[in-house]
Design a protein around this nucleic acid. Structure first.
Lengths: 344, 344
DNA sequence: CTGAAAGCGCTTACAG
DNA sequence: CTGAAAGCGCTTACAG
């Protein structure tokens, strides 16, 4: 490939001069500038970014680490879109890499690899699947030790409040259940995601908290899970609930996807929604609005969490004090036809 | 940060020796090896990959370029998952970056940026949205000029058959329409995606070809599009079709997403599926199976196209002759309840 | 078995 | 206004 030396030779100047015009540094006469640009054009010269970064000791690169296996989540694609845009605006190169979401050690290894390539800052989306001992401590220590800022998405680090943004999934599920209760429901079932997921456990707890606070019966047989945390799992779980022949007027589901599966199971069993049973999803997936009936849900501010993370990272990179205060986000009710009021 | 020199000094050897033990090159006594590893551990030394790449003149890095704005597609997440796995297995670092899918010039710029960082090979997923003059020529020329192999996904480059893999969307749509015809349908409507998309135009053409071949009437009023190529667009388009008060027994849709929107519109108008009208989607999105009724579709071999692309890239990188012959893929019928047979 | 030296492609004071 | 030299952190023949 053509190097800066080739350009310098073609023009008859030194590398330093070529470098200076490239970086508009120092004083260079208009004539040589022109000649240099001409040669660059002719030779189709492009600087080797690796060499530049090594020499300058900055890479102007942001690293983004995403978890694998999120085929169904809009979070990740949105995260990529928004972070790329942020990087473009800040004049940084975005280097995205993916890591198995189930293993925190692999995650830390990947973060280190990003550092080895001299990223100036890193955003790490922590998969809900990870739940190992001491993970909080590991991440907090990592943030201390790393030579560049690391912002963690989707996890609470109490000792590093300026380095994380997360959803309060307990509150998100509560929102749905409280709404059901306010509308007269007392016998509320819950379809749960798989319990190895942090998000899943938090949402289940939100359901339980809301029931307790309202003084309603907490029957573990009103809670069911399925083979996965998606359509099929919702379908499975709902069939279980139906088989148990319990009395319930509403189901809150771990996600819209599970709610869609549940809806199918209910229909197959001749149970009308919302006439016989009301359904609530969580996440406000776009498709929920196109179900029959459309599914009520809690909208989760995905864009907000990402833009806050981006803002935090840039502030740290510029050694500014972070301006963001609330790094814990909840959601917003979205009413659709899958829930009916119960009047005694 | 700690450098190789720090390690060398701590052990009392030269940088060359440290480098040799790190790369297990040359003969180094066990004793110094041990001492070096100990120092590396103690100092938490990690080689600067930028410096390594510059010196070695290889980076062991693969670049993956994805389009933005694919919030709804499972292709992209799958592409990331599979390419990452491929890179891991090949011992390469995967550097993913994203670019506005609408502009081929931006795409080429991003490819160049990847080269500037010395990627040893690049996979470029060409968005269907791009459709500019001369794009085929631009990409073919780029492949010629680039110092490393570039494989293009989702686009046909007739003069570079070993550097591209794509879906034959004409054939994919034909498959659905031919199946409807075989099952007795004659009046078949089509809900189209937005025509600025290459995929969208190809699928529409597949519908038209199939109708023509069967000697069926091609009525342009049986074709409708919507505000987007997704749920809402399908809903809009179907409402248009209904308003036109034409006689049709089936609708083939550009995608499952549009089919889901269409289903909603039909239901709202008291039209039963499949009793009154049959519906066909394309893509075989997972959610289609959870509709009421489940939607027939054409499964598109996403995984295949990606693994072929990966194989091609690695073969080029190793200067092997590509073994893959068929770089054009079609789909497979998936029968569900949204289509009924018509018996005269 | 080990080290001095040159080199990868760039930038950056500094001297002229 | 321009260039020689040193340096970024590593690797790689080569000499000893």
């Amino acid at each position: 490939m053509v190097t800066i030396l080739d350009v310098a030779r073609q023009v008859g100047v030194s590398k330093a001069t070529v470098s200076n015009v490239l970086n508009s540094k120092g004083r260079v006469s208009e004539a040589t500038k022109k000649a240099v640009f001409k040669a660059i054009e002719e030779l189709d010269y492009r600087p080797n970014v690796l060499a530049q970064s090594l020499s300058k000791q900055v890479s102007d690169t942001i690293g983004l680490l995403i978890p694998s296996g999120y085929h169904t989540s809009r979070y990740i694609t949105r995260l990529i879109d928004m972070t790329q845009e942020l990087a473009n605006k800040a004049g940084k190169f975005l280097m995205i890499t993916q890591v198995d979401g189930n293993d925190i050690e692999l995650g830390i290894q990947s973060i280190r690899k990003l550092i080895d390539r001299r990223c100036d800052g890193i955003i790490y989306y922590k998969s809900s699947h990870i739940e190992e001992i001491d993970i909080q401590n590991k991440l907090e220590t990592l943030i201390e030790e790393l030579p560049v800022p690391l912002v963690v998405l989707n996890y609470n680090l109490p000792n590093k409040p300026d380095y994380c943004v997360w959803f309060d999934h307990v509150a998100i599920a509560q929102l749905a259940v409280v709404n059901l209760i306010e509308r007269g429901h007392k016998k509320i079932a819950y379809i749960s995601g798989q319990q190895h997921m942090h998000t899943s456990r938090a949402r289940l707890q939100g359901y339980q908290d809301a029931m307790k606070k309202a003084g309603l019966e907490l029957n573990s047989r009103l809670i069911a899970g399925g083979s996965d945390s998606h359509y099929q799992g919702g379908y499975d779980a709902c069939k279980k609930l139906i088989k148990r022949e319990l009395d319930f007027s509403a189901i809150c589901c771990y996600s819209d996807a599970m709610a869609i599966g549940a809806l199918k199971a209910l229909k197959e069993n001749g149970i009308s929604v919302p006439e016989d049973v009301s359904i609530f999803g969580l996440d406000n997936d776009y498709v929920g609005d196109f179900m029959d009936p459309p599914i009520s849900s809690i909208d989760v501010p995905v864009d907000d969490i990402i833009s806050i993370a981006g803002k935090l990272l840039l502030e740290h990179m510029q050694n500014k004090l972070p301006t963001s205060k609330s790094n814990s986000l909840t959601g917003q009710l979205v009413h659709r036809k899958s829930v009916k009021d119960i009047i005694d």
